[in-house]
Simulated assay, not measured.
Amino acid sequence: MEPFRHSAALSLGVELELQLVNTHDYDLAPYSDEMLRLMKRIPLPGSVVPEMTSSMIEVSTGVCHSSSEVLGQLTQTRDALVKCADKLNIAVVGGGTHPFQQWHEQRIYNRPRFHQLTELYGYLTKQFTIFGQHVHIGCPDADAALLMLHRMSRYIPHFIALSASSPYVQAQDTQFDSARLNSVFAFPMSGRAPFTLSWDEFRNWFRKTTRTGVVKSMKDFYWDIRPKPEYGTIEIRVFDTPLTIERAAALSGFVQALAAWFIHEQPFTPVEDDYMVYTYNRFQACRFGLDAVYVEPSTGEHVPLREHIVSTLRRIDEHAHDVGATAAIDMLALSADLGANDAKWLRETHAREQLLAEMVRQASERFRGAK
């Protein structure tokens, strides 16, 4: 395992996996090579890279220090994506799943690692045509990263419910707000990181795991949150890709404000028993979104998740102000208060239009910033 590199505490990096769709019936379109070719000509912060299948593309920011900086970088990249997509007569869309694509029609992108994964996981790799947002948060050192990871785990349901945007799979309403994560959970190395608060212990655990031959690097873990020693961060991976870059930036602001609270106030010490309710809380958030029930790990108290989100956002308000995330926190608090996430917008749009393709078309307009 690589040494844990230095990064600025509370620095941010955001990755977004995005859908490429045609403008005929708004199904997925295998245009990632063409998009990458056009995007290469435009100087941008961060990077634009292929993903598992050819109808996906991943964009990332550079190292940022606030959610407003994240938004600024994502705006540049979004505008370039839209410009290139228009040239190809396709569209770019957010959302955690494409609502009616058929997994067996997808093409694995021609990259050795993706072909190796296909040999190992079979059809699951094509079913991995799903779209998430990953948020990296800088940590002062390796032990602090593990402490941050396990503290942050209490808020996985909050992240899922606020970002949920994948209610439809293969033309069916799944009754989940985030059905995307069901595809992630199919992988054997998904779930949560082992409970250890010492980087030496974690490194020993990693050595034992690699000796089994089951994994070769940290990339082989599909955990909800994983350490990224090469960046000096932890990476939170449970967010569905939002329909707008504004929401994506706001979610990064929430992560940063939480991390500031953890660092400056040390509000609680995580323990292994916190994970007794972890899977239940995660399921509740995937299934019911902002209408989920949240079990408080320390007390076992059952509370409406949206109430817990709002009270959490109020508690970290001072830290949000310090890191410039007040607008982000206000946006998410209003969303939680109204029970309004992207999954709700998708369902309401489909109920009005009665056509999934039209719902995708309108989602593509939202992504490009149309009012």
Rank of each mutant, 00 (worst) to 15 (best):
M148L: 10
M148Y: 02
M148G: 04
H150F: 01
H150C: 02
R151P: 05
R151I: 00
M152D: 04
M152T: 05
S153A: 09
R154S: 11
Y155K: 13
Y155Q: 11
I156S: 13
I156Y: 02
P157L: 08
P157Y: 02
P157C: 09
I160V: 06
I160A: 03
I160G: 03
I160S: 05
A161W: 00
A161G: 03
L162Y: 01
L162A: 00
L162Q: 11
A164V: 01
A164W: 03
S165C: 01
S165T: 00
S165H: 08
S166W: 02
S166E: 04
S166G: 10
S166Q: 05
P167D: 05
P167E: 05
Y168N: 08
Y168H: 07
Y168Q: 09
Y168C: 04
V169H: 13
V169R: 15
Q170F: 10
A171V: 00
Q172R: 14
T174R: 03
Q175N: 12
Q175L: 15
Q175C: 07
Q175V: 07
F176I: 01
D177T: 06
D177Y: 01
D177E: 08
A179T: 02
R180N: 04
R180M: 06
R180H: 00
L181T: 09
N182R: 15
N182P: 09
V184F: 03
V184T: 04
V184A: 10
F185C: 15
A186R: 15
A186G: 07
F187V: 13
F187Y: 14
F187H: 15
S190A: 10
G191W: 02
A193G: 09
A193D: 05
P194H: 05
P194E: 09
P194G: 10
F195H: 08
T196V: 07
T196Q: 10
T196W: 00
L197D: 07
L197S: 07
L197M: 12
S198I: 01
S198H: 04
W199D: 14
W199N: 15
W199C: 13
E201W: 00
E201K: 11
F202M: 09
R203A: 14
R203Q: 14
F206V: 02
F206T: 06
F206L: 11
F206H: 14
F206A: 13
R207V: 09
R207C: 12
R207T: 14
T209H: 13
T209F: 08
T210S: 13
T210A: 11
T210I: 06
R211S: 11
R211K: 13
R211V: 00
R211I: 00
R211T: 03
T212E: 14
T212W: 10
T212P: 13
G213V: 01
G213Y: 02
G213A: 02
V214S: 09
K216P: 10
